[in-house]
Amino acid sequence: MNNTKTLLRNAGLEWQEGALETTAIVSPAKLKDTAEQLQREEWYLLDIVGVDYLEFTVKQPARFAVIYNLYHLGENARVFLKVFLEDGETLPSLYSVWKAANYLEREVYDLVGVVFDEHPDLRKVLTPEDLEGHPLRKDFPLGESPTLFNDGRFLDPSTFRAGVTGKDRGLSGYKGGERAGTSSAPLPPTLEVFTANVEKVKA
């Protein structure tokens, strides 16, 4: 862990305190320079994650984030470079830095809809050609079809599941537990509350 931080300090990166993984936030303008510098220091690109923070409970700097998963072989160090960007903004392609970015950027483009400039071949990679939209955006529906039973009864899966999400009431009217930051729903009953209630009833 300390090695990772030394390596990052050498590269002039600041990491987020308190995060479970070592995450450094980079601005889109500096991304390519940072990547080139890290590539010279023998960091390798393993994965790219695209995230749509549209419905996230904690306020984020922008709607989208692209997270680069980098690994340093000699020090066994791992860092996540996080770039925030709004809808419509583009990122420079890192294909010229790491060839591994080829498919990974295409995947982020396909599923989240982030455009990478100067990518040699930015096409859809997983979804069918005729699918409009980007499935992993939060405003893209899951696209469930209702279950049809023999006697003509329908079961809508999202209603069936509603109590679990905590967003709306399901068939039972149960609204689920607290969601951090949004809800003021009562906490789930703990042992202390439960025994206290029992004592109250006994008294």
Binding site: L46, D47, V49, G50, V51, D52, E55, F56, T57, V58, N69, A100, Y103, L104, E107, L136, V164, T165, G166, G176, G177, R179, A180, G181
Partner: peptide, 17 residues
């Protein structure tokens, strides 16, 4: 995001790379 379901899951798929 603090809910009972993951907000986002990204699988690092070795075969893909």
């Amino acid at each position: 995001d603090g809910g009972s379901m993951p907000y986002r899951v990204k699988i690092r798929a070795p075969s893909f790379v």
